[in-house]
Design a protein around this nucleic acid. Structure first.
Lengths: 126, 126
DNA sequence: TTTGTATTCAACGGATTAGTTGATCAACTG
DNA sequence: CAGTTGATCAACTAATCCGTTGAATACAAA
């Protein structure tokens, strides 16, 4: 049940979670402090149950955590998870265009690797 | 057909696009320079057509663009789109916890707004 | 204990997604 | 021209996702 830190499953879920406008608005709201499910559901035209599911998606992505307060389950934003996302993006944000070499040259004249010698395992990570 | 800058549809698609490990690896590869569909498909165990679809998803999200080179369609990363994602995240990365007020007080004692006076339209954006 | 409030669970339908295979299109090569 | 390469289109399947409604749970208040 514990999350596996060597898998990128959390990263998958976190990006997908932020791909929904409802969930992004929830995150935006939570950045101003914790809120209950009812609070979070209020601005939306969808059912409370649907919002509850969205919160579960955010929780499984590690983006939020839940505490307990009587019958309420306050939701808190987990800023660390958001930082992981920016960290991933920042790793690839800068494009190394290799401007000294034209695109045609790149495509027709592979630098040092002959067509038979493929090295697919060190491509990248995550 | 032109993208509508006032909609967050692009943001939706971009986050969802990065939620797939295959597409993240494609982005990672493209950060080192443009590549053809065949190049991008090589490291994967899935069909070329599947990779072609992944590229279309990335393209519709604004994350990549395609050019033309004879029968090849080189794919280029669009760093601007990645920056938009980090920009969104950075807006909410810092949590304003309002530590001077306890969670219970937050929940049971709404600051200045009486329960009847709701103002849901300025909640947030995107 | 009964009632009310806050939230989740369960089952379902409709839409979307990621993969497949087979056919097609476009451009280069001999 | 015919053949090959690079990539897309089309049709299909299995799985997942987003929303619904109705029932169940947990705690509080009367």
């Amino acid at each position: 049940m514990l999350p596996d830190p060597t898998s990128d499953d959390r990263l998958d879920r976190a990006f997908v979670a932020l791909g929904d406008p409802v969930r992004r608005r929830i995150v935006a709201r939570l950045s101003r402090g914790p809120a209950t499910v009812g609070d979070l559901a209020a601005p939306f035209a969808i059912s409370l149950q649907a919002v509850s599911k969205h919160i579960q998606v955010l929780e499984q992505a590690g983006l939020v955590t839940r505490t307990r307060d009587a019958q309420r389950r306050p939701v808190h934003l987990n800023p660390g998870a958001l930082e992981e996302l920016t960290a991933w993006i920042d790793r690839y944000r800068l494009v190394h265009e290799q401007s000294y070499r034209t695109l045609d040259a790149l495509l027709t004249d592979p630098p040092t690797a002959p067509p038979g010698a493929a090295e697919p395992s060190q491509e990248d990570r995550s």
